[in-house]
Amino acid sequence: MVLYIPTDSLLHRLHPSTKIVGLVMLLILTVAFQSPWYQLIILSGVLLLARSAGAFRNLRRILPLMITVLVFSVLSWSLFKRVGEPFWSFGLLTLSTESIRFGFAMGFRLEAMLVSGMIFVSCTKVEEFAYGLRAIGLPFAVSFALSLAFRLVPLFFTRIGTVVQAQQARGLDLKSGNVLQRARKYVPLLVPIFVYAIRDTDLLSMALESKGFGMQGKRTEFLSFPFVWRDYAILGFLLVLNLAGWLMPVP
């Protein structure tokens, strides 16, 4: 993935399947708790993980998004959620201790999810992702298609850039005109982009077929990741946390 950070950390060394299952378990864990304090603990935990995986570089890139998400969820849930006894109200807006607690819980939860996802993409290569999916049991074609999509998106954007420049050079001005006029201006962009996409896909399929893609029967893997004690330990730990989180009486 584009955000992959090539360093060597404990998280990087995990088995790809552990990374995928671990991410899913982390996400489930954030949903288990309603209390802002527990959410804060989880958030601090994933931030520590992010730190250890060297993912802060990527977090900095999405910092504006993270701040927006936090402020927006705290404000909107606090003001619009109707729980408990409001101690302040103005029209539709109300504030209560419970709604404020809820707002913070939601804010921290979303942040924890964002950070978890970011850690995952920071320490997983596309091929590892595909390998991990296969190891869990997904068919090769599906995991390959998924990983290929990640690979092709940036390439596709470069192609779009070229087409946009080619048409701008011929005087296409996308900024002026009303909505309808502007929509019509996209035709000169869309046609070459589609032609491009079809042609590229065709060539790529031929290249894949020529290398034995689609062959029946067993396939071997160039990469190999041993599943070792640290994978058991991490997954076991997350499982225990989840069990505790979901079975514990709601505080």
């Binding site: 596309v126 091929e127 690979r151 290398k211 034995g212 396939r219 071997t220």
Partner: peptide, 24 residues
């Protein structure tokens, strides 16, 4: 451009071999 699809050189080279089920 269109015939390469892997994220590194060695995986690109290995792709056909994986399909042909060559031993690691």
């Amino acid at each position: 451009e269109a015939q390469l699809f892997s994220t590194n050189v060695e995986l690109e080279t290995a792709f056909a071999l994986e399909n042909f089920a060559v031993d690691r």
